[in-house]
């Protein structure tokens, strides 16, 4: 089981992580964050293979990944 933690308040909405996710598991949230952008969220029920592409790409270091 792999958990992806995204700091939605720090996300600036560049969506570079969405573009690199090989499983298309990341999407745009419906609600704005404090910065006024729709942050990235991990899609419900989506799978993560732990490739770390999203965290490698994120310019704002918003993503942490944990493995059980």
């Amino acid at each position: 089981m792999i958990n992806v933690h995204i700091d939605g308040q720090r996300c600036k909405g560049c969506y570079l992580c969405i573009a690199v996710c090989p499983r298309k598991s990341l999407g745009v949230a419906a609600v704005l964050n404090k910065k006024g952008v729709k942050p990235v969220e991990f899609k419900k029920g989506a799978e993560c293979i732990g490739c770390r592409f999203c965290a490698t790409m994120c310019p704002d270091c918003c993503i942490e990944i944990e493995k059980e």
């Binding site: 732990g50 990944i65 944990e66 493995k67």
Partner: peptide, 8 residues
Amino acid sequence: MEKIYAHP
């Protein structure tokens, strides 16, 4: 839980 990508 083991962090496979952590904030530096």
